[in-house]
Nucleic acid binder design. Structure first.
Lengths: 108, 108
DNA sequence: GTCGATATGTAGGTTGGCTACATGTCGTCT
DNA sequence: AGACGACATGTAGCCAACCTACATATCGAC
């Protein structure tokens, strides 16, 4: 998968994995990897700046903790984040329709 | 639809509309608009540089003509472009699976 | 003779995902 | 003891591509 393909689609994906349970960065990485069937292996230079961006925008809130000697920053969805996620899901459906209308991926 | 969403997906879409008939830039714009149900209205500052990029990369070949006093540059798919288009379609299917695996767009 | 559709193009800004680097803990194996 | 891999977080700087805004020109209709 090309790198640029993610542009503009990563944010809702991150919000989606913390929708039902707060997770820390590393766990978010693992969740994305698992939910994508091993395809989405984000470098830390992508994930951590994205998390800070989403927090600065008010879609996530974070809290530090220490688990067995390791520091964790756990993120949870805010209510603004919940709205953003809903919007993102709708936009994805539109986007998919646009691409498939043009691409007709089933056709040779 | 957010601007960045297109990133990395536009190239195969352009190749797709000239797959079966060569078209000039303006006609490509209209074809994209029509196939996307009016959603994909590309600014010229996006389309024309993209066409030149695709030609420079060897996926399109162009030819000038004049139709009722107006100059047109008509693009057609090369064999490399055909391969690229096929690859692009496959990558789209993968990408869609990744996003939907993470997003679960049907769920509230 | 003005305006909208047709037609093509460039310059420059922005942005977000990437590479590469930096730091530190913990458990396991040898 | 110490080396190594998994766990855990982060920054600096690069770059591609999509965008806004601008520039140019023809044609038909009003």
């Amino acid at each position: 998968m090309k790198a640029d393909a993610l542009r503009g689609h990563l944010d809702p994906m991150i919000l989606a994995v913390v929708e039902h349970e707060p997770l820390h960065g590393y766990a978010i990485m693992e969740a994305l990897l698992e939910r994508s069937g091993g395809e989405l292996d984000l470098p830390t230079g992508t994930l951590y700046p994205a998390l800070r961006r989403l927090e600065r925008a008010g879609y996530l809130a974070s809290e530090w903790s220490t688990v067995s000697g390791r520091k964790r920053r756990t993120y949870q969805l805010t209510s603004a984040g919940q709205k953003m996620l809903a919007t993102g899901k709708e936009e994805w459906v539109t986007f998919r329709a646009v691409v498939e209308g043009v691409l007709r991926p089933g056709q040779a």
